[in-house]
């Protein structure tokens, strides 16, 4: 065999770093997953002549709008932290904003859980009617992603206190922006 290794090393020049490409593919499948759910929503809604929450229940539209803002802010702060990491001497500040982003993300999930408890108390459960089933399915799927995303921010944050890795930060942002970006769609479809 006549193997030759380039002077630059064994690996080719990468166009997209592996963690980012891997996450891009993962986010792509997640978007397809949510597309499946959303098309299920449209199919079920179109054949249901009775598409409202159970009697006596009103969805918390306003407080959820506030919660939406918290999630959105969390996304913005994560991006802000990313920009700060690139600047000299802004490491501590970046870590601080990243942590706030985590707190806001967890607040979003916690607040939603609190709303669910109230909805349950008013008698809107998974089985009340097809609307509430679809509601909990879609919002619940998103909440599961938001929870794992928030935990991922915390986990990565802990790692960054030792050493910052730009690729990991970009991958994290891609996942979190997906969570943030899908939310308004679900909010619009299910709360109005």
């Amino acid at each position: 065999m006549s193997g030759h290794v380039m002077a630059s090393g064994a690996v080719q020049k990468k166009k997209i770093p592996s963690p980012i490409l891997g996450m891009l593919l993962f986010v792509f499948t997640e978007i397809m997953f949510f597309s499946g759910l959303i098309s299920a929503y449209f199919v079920i809604r179109s054949r249901s002549n009775f598409w409202v929450p159970p009697e006596g229940v009103r969805l918390p539209v306003l407080s959820t709008a506030f919660n939406t803002f918290a999630l959105f802010l969390s996304g913005v702060l994560l991006y802000y932290a990313y920009r700060l990491f690139d600047m000299k001497g802004k490491r501590e500040k970046a870590l601080f904003y990243m942590f706030i982003s985590f707190l806001l993300g967890s607040f979003f999930v916690g607040f939603q859980g609190f709303e669910w408890v109230r909805l349950f108390a008013y008698g809107m459960t998974l089985k009340s009617n097809i609307f509430s089933s679809v509601f909990y399915l879609l919002i619940g799927s998103h909440a599961a992603h938001a929870l794992s995303g928030a935990l991922a921010i915390l986990f990565v944050w802990k790692g960054f206190r030792r050493k910052y890795q730009k690729d990991v930060m970009i991958a994290l942002m891609m996942f979190w922006f997906m969570v943030v970006g899908i939310w308004p769609v679900l909010y619009g479809l299910l709360y109005f």
Partner: peptide, 28 residues
Amino acid sequence: GPLIAGAVMLLFDQIYHIGFFNPNKGGD
């Protein structure tokens, strides 16, 4: 992705008798 979404829905139908795919309950 869409099949995993469907599988979650079907699992709910099987275990909790929700009715995403049951016309009597408004499903399809």
